[in-house]
Design a protein around this nucleic acid. Sequence first.
DNA 1: TTGAGGCATCGGAACATTCCGATATAGCGA
DNA 2: TCGCTATATCGGAATGTTCCGATGCCTCAA
Lengths: 105, 105
Amino acid sequence: MSNAELHDLLEVCKALANPTRLQIMGWLRDPSDHFAPQADPMEEVGVCVKQIQEKAGISQSTASQFMSVLQRAGLVESTRIGQWTYYRRNQERIAALPGLLSASL
Amino acid sequence: MSNAELHDLLEVCKALANPTRLQIMGWLRDPSDHFAPQADPMEEVGVCVKQIQEKAGISQSTASQFMSVLQRAGLVESTRIGQWTYYRRNQERIAALPGLLSASL
DNA sequence: TTGAGGCATCGGAACATTCCGATATAGCGA
DNA sequence: TCGCTATATCGGAATGTTCCGATGCCTCAA
């Protein structure tokens, strides 16, 4: 129950304490089941902000902010390709969450 | 990724998205390491609100509210004995969290 | 070079959370 | 019964979150 772990877990909980952000994380698990095809392969690079915005029914600025929150919490990572920013799950970090829970909670 | 599970996970995240509440959950893991002896055995019934209040350095009303939030999220359960309300971890529910994560997140 | 599309950031209005003191209820002991 | 202690709940001020439109930057194609 180190202090750093506790802080990490807190940031994760804060990031997920919003219904839309929680939903987005679920959609990103199987991107091709939830989003339309795009310029680059979503299974590799992730999904662009515009698609997430449309799917979630939120404004462009809110979508961008939400993805930043999820990224700062370590739950997603991003790749910039041309004019698009693709977001995908940080699977290593997510896989480590149960351990973080049992260590800190 | 049922809707009910998603809602449960959201409530858990909201409950834990506060540094003091997160800390309290940790303290309740090994109560006798963090709280002074009390009228009833804390390993069985849990810890009374007053002790949590003092340990966390918050007001009585805030302590009571915080424990209600944790209880509504299913993270703790309570027993009333005489003039005390003892709170303890809902270990079954907590043990189910990793599964809830992998199912909903 | 210019215009259009995608994204990030800023500023702010609406809403929610935090956290307190005051007050109400109930158990306990004198 | 009366006062003391523990807890819950109420009302509200301060603070944080949510979410938007406006704006600016960057990339691509014409």
